[in-house]
């Protein structure tokens, strides 16, 4: 554990809490992509199957359980409790365009051709692109609520902080996981445009809107 990974995990946790708070407080999931949230639930489910087979630490187990539970909690709020507020007309990204290629790639490029390892690889690849329906939704509507933009900033920061963690671990622990690093870099790059808008607009007190 190093400071980058810890702050990355905290940013990730903060993002999830922000999203749940937004939905709960406004009693609405307007502007949130149900498809991105479904894919995040799939990401956590396929990655954390090792909860059953492998104990790493109390911290690790607790965080994994929080991530899995909160992702299904978010789905519950979006698709059951506040279903009427779900903006499905703008959530039109085709999930199969991500899930199918990612599934294929996880069979082809992995550390070990075993069921758990393939599922772990699938989750890493899927996570890297799972935000695309959300970003697509914002580009369609041309704006995002400020709380949603804070959520996205925290979520994007998490993987950026993980990159620093991987640099640290490479130099100080000799640890290097090519699959995680490449996918993590792709994931972070996808946020760059959003980061720019967030810093130039939201940090100056304006709402996040896209240039016409």
């Amino acid at each position: 554990m190093n400071v980058f990974r810890l702050t990355g995990d905290i940013a990730h946790l903060l993002a999830i809490i922000l999203l749940l708070m937004k939905i709960w407080k406004t009693r609405s999931c307007a502007g949130v992509s149900g498809k991105s949230q479904m894919m995040f639930a799939l990401v956590f489910t396929t990655r954390y199957l090792d909860l059953i087979t492998n104990f790493i630490s109390l911290y690790n187990t607790t965080m994994k359980m929080i991530f899995i539970a909160s992702s299904y909690g978010t789905l519950y709020l979006m698709f059951l409790k506040f279903r009427a507020t779900y903006d499905s007309n703008h959530d039109t990204f085709r999930m199969e365009f991500l899930v199918v290629p990612v599934a294929g790639l996880s069979f082809l490029v992995n550390h070990d051709f075993s069921p758990l390892e393939i599922l772990w690889t699938f989750s890493i690849y899927l996570e890297s692109v799972a935000i695309l329906p959300q970003l697509f939704m914002i580009s369609k509507t041309g704006e995002a609520e400020t709380i949603t933009s804070h959520y996205l900033f925290a979520l994007g920061s998490y993987r950026a902080l993980y990159i620093l963690n991987w640099v640290y671990r490479f130099y100080f622990e000799g640890f290097f996981d090519l699959i995680a690093v490449v996918a993590g870099c792709v994931q972070t790059v996808l946020y760059c445009d959003f980061f720019y808008l967030y810093i130039t607009k939201v940090w100056k007190g304006k709402k996040l809107t896209l240039p016409a």
Binding site: R5, N54, S57, M63, H111, E117, D177
Partner: peptide, 10 residues
Amino acid sequence: AEAAENHDEL
């Protein structure tokens, strides 16, 4: 790195 590392990250 060996295959199927112990995935200790989240």
